[in-house]
């Protein structure tokens, strides 16, 4: 098995001289759920279109499952399931007929897979109802079912929870997590709904104005978003000692710049300040830090700086 499901190197896409994706280099490891975050026009859909072959890169390379080159990529795309922008639906057909059409198109002989994927996305009971009479949420579910038809190893979903009701959102979230855990599927998912993405993804790719701003794991993101006191002192050893002996906490982290992040006593800044002062620790900074995912995202893309 390839070490990376997807690897892009200096991937650039321009339209009439204007670059919409600039030198994107990233690697996606197997069995992870990657949340692709970016504003409208950031380049999320363009990146997905390039991966799936709907567009061609202006420069740079794409490698899928360790293979690159047009012919090989085409072959490797058979291991991908995708839903980009809108689901691929024939509106005059029922859910089952749509699934059958795509099953035949992909040369999948197993007919049982039709009921299986419809059941997975909760559309098993739609009977003779045509896709044109489906709600937006049902169309999204059907699109996801089509993407899952070939039991892909790499699933690419562009705004899959658009139009879904709250229960539908939870169901799709649970489905994606299940697919990732049970089938070791790699999922690249874009969404504007950051709190939702936060509950689904294991890794985050932040793009802004065509540039890759950050690729970080859930743990790294949590670390950056977690509320804490940022304490700076000229005597970090003494500071840590006081925290442990007087405030009885080990819930802190010493950063490379010798500042200390304290995750306890967040509601009692006065106590922390007083105890440190009483024990002779000279502090140069004691501030409340931490962000919501939204605030962190905004700070990364160049809004209010992240402290």
């Amino acid at each position: 098995m390839a070490e990376h499901v997807l690897r892009t190197t200096n991937l650039t896409k321009s339209y009439r001289g204007a670059a919409v994706l600039k030198q994107i280099s990233l690697s996606l490891a197997p069995g992870r759920i990657y949340g692709l975050i970016g504003q409208n026009g950031a380049g999320k859909t363009t990146l997905m279109r390039l991966i799936t072959g709907l567009s061609f890169p202006s420069s740079g390379t794409i490698e899928l499952f360790g293979h690159q080159g047009e012919k090989d990529l085409q072959l490797e795309r058979k291991r991908i399931g995708s839903m980009i922008e809108y689901p691929s639906l024939t509106l005059s057909m029922t859910a089952q007929e749509n699934i059958r059409l795509h099953r035949i198109m992909r040369g999948i002989p197993n007919k049982e897979i039709e009921d299986e994927v419809l059941k997975l996305v909760g559309l098993a009971g739609t009977g003779k109802k045509k896709a044109k009479n489906f709600s937006l949420g049902m169309k999204q579910r059907l699109g996801i079912a089509i993407a899952l038809l070939s039991s892909p190893e790499f699933l690419i979903l562009d705004e899959p929870i658009n139009g879904l009701d709250p229960v539908g959102v939870i169901e799709i979230r649970n489905l994606l997590k299940k697919l990732c855990e049970e089938r070791h599927m790699t999922i690249l998912i874009s969404s504007h709904n950051l709190p939702e993405l936060y509950q689904t993804a294991t890794d985050y790719i932040i793009v802004h104005q065509g540039e890759l701003k950050q690729l970080l794991t859930q743990e790294q993101l949590e670390e950056r978003c977690k509320h804490h006191f940022l304490i700076r002192s000229n005597e970090p050893e003494k500071l840590v000692s006081v925290l442990e002996t007087q405030l009885h906490t080990t819930n802190y982290k010493v950063m490379p710049d010798q500042s200390v992040k304290l995750y306890d006593y967040l509601d009692d800044k006065e106590k922390v300040s007083r105890v440190l002062y009483d024990h002779g620790v000279v502090i140069t900074n004691l501030s409340n830090e931490g962000d919501t995912l939204e605030n962190y995202f905004i700070s990364v893309i160049g809004g209010e700086p992240h402290a």
């Binding site: 085409q74 691929s88 509106l91």
Partner: peptide
Amino acid sequence: DSRTFHDAVASGSS
């Protein structure tokens, strides 16, 4: 319109 071509290309048809 139905994005059938999109799906064909994305799933590896030349």
